[in-house]
């Protein structure tokens, strides 16, 4: 068999290998998503037939409540993302450059939420920081009686999402940091760099790829989050996840729910594009 024929045969085998999952994704993900998106743009006419309409989007972007919800979701996402990196980067740095029992204990604690179901995290947070929860009881014991629970404020979902997102963030950051050799840090010290300079000029640029992945994945996870804000309780304004649920199930307006979902999808897809570009660019850089 010629090399070309063999290569062609291997190519077909490769395609056959991925055909089932790709077909499943197309049928169960892309097709219903496309139907839903098209359904928000192509509407039935009164006299029969269909017409193109942006009416549901016009409503969303002129409705102050919808816009406030979108703004609250963006705020929650950005604040959570910043805090996730701010909390996890020092832990990842400590774990990368410190060896010993304490580092192992911290790693175990930080990764623990990965093994806790989201719904348990929600109830744990409510029981801990909610009204008459553990925290309030403990503060009462030490004479502090002015505790206001944050769990129904914008900070409630932020705290919960940080707890939920910590393990993934930490793992990706540790993975990025593990690619920085001890010698390159020592080389920076050798030419005169102090700790802060090493962090700013050596470590941070070297883990840009990991930071991009962390930001993109967390953005996707937080922006489209429904469980955590829903379980913590009703708020006003609310995040897009519970907003969609309520519009669909309680208000019974599937068109607006689909419109909200499409807008959420479009915003998330920006983070998705950044993630895919980051993944695609890295091997090319390595090949140079």
């Amino acid at each position: 068999m010629s090399a070309t024929a063999m290569s062609l045969r291997n190519g077909w085998r490769g395609l056959a290998f991925i055909a089932i999952p790709v077909t499943a994704i197309a049928i169960f993900l892309f097709y219903p998503a496309a139907l839903s998106i098209i359904g928000t743009l192509v509407r039935p006419k009164d006299g029969g037939g269909y017409t193109f309409s942006l009416q549901s989007y016009v409503f969303f972007f002129t409705d102050s409540y919808s816009l406030t919800n979108l703004g609250r979701t963006l705020w929650t996402t950005v604040v959570t993302l910043i805090l996730l990196v701010a909390v996890n980067l020092p832990i990842a740095l400590y774990m990368r450059f410190t060896k010993g029992t304490l580092a192992t204990v911290i790693q175990a604690l930080a990764l623990f939420p990965m093994f806790v179901p989201g719904i348990i995290i929600c109830y744990a947070l409510i029981r801990y920081m909610g009204p008459n929860g553990w925290l309030q009881s403990l503060l009462n014991l030490v004479g502090f009686h002015h505790y206001a629970s944050p769990h129904l404020t914008p900070w409630g979902p932020v705290i919960g999402l940080i707890w939920d997102g910590m393990p993934l963030t930490l793992l990706i950051l540790i993975s990025g940091l593990s690619n920085i050799s001890d010698a390159s840090i020592e080389a920076a010290r050798d030419v005169g760099a102090g700790r802060l300079r090493i962090l700013v000029s050596i470590i941070t640029p070297e883990i840009t790829h990991s930071l991009l992945i962390v930001s993109a994945l967390n953005f996707l996870g937080i922006f489209g989050q429904a469980l955590m804000p829903f379980m913590l309780g009703p708020t006003n304004p609310e995040m897009m996840g519970p907003f969609m649920l309520r519009t669909f199930a309680s208000v019974r307006d599937p068109l607006q729910a689909s419109t909200q979902a499409t807008i959420t999808f479009l915003i998330c897809s920006l983070a998705g594009v950044a993630y895919v570009r980051s993944l695609a660019r890295r091997p090319q850089e390595d090949r140079k």
Binding site: S181, A183, S184, A187, A188, I202, E206
Partner: peptide
């Protein structure tokens, strides 16, 4: 250093 230790 043995491993060059250049900043990529």
């Amino acid at each position: 250093f043995q491993s060059h230790a250049l900043w990529s």
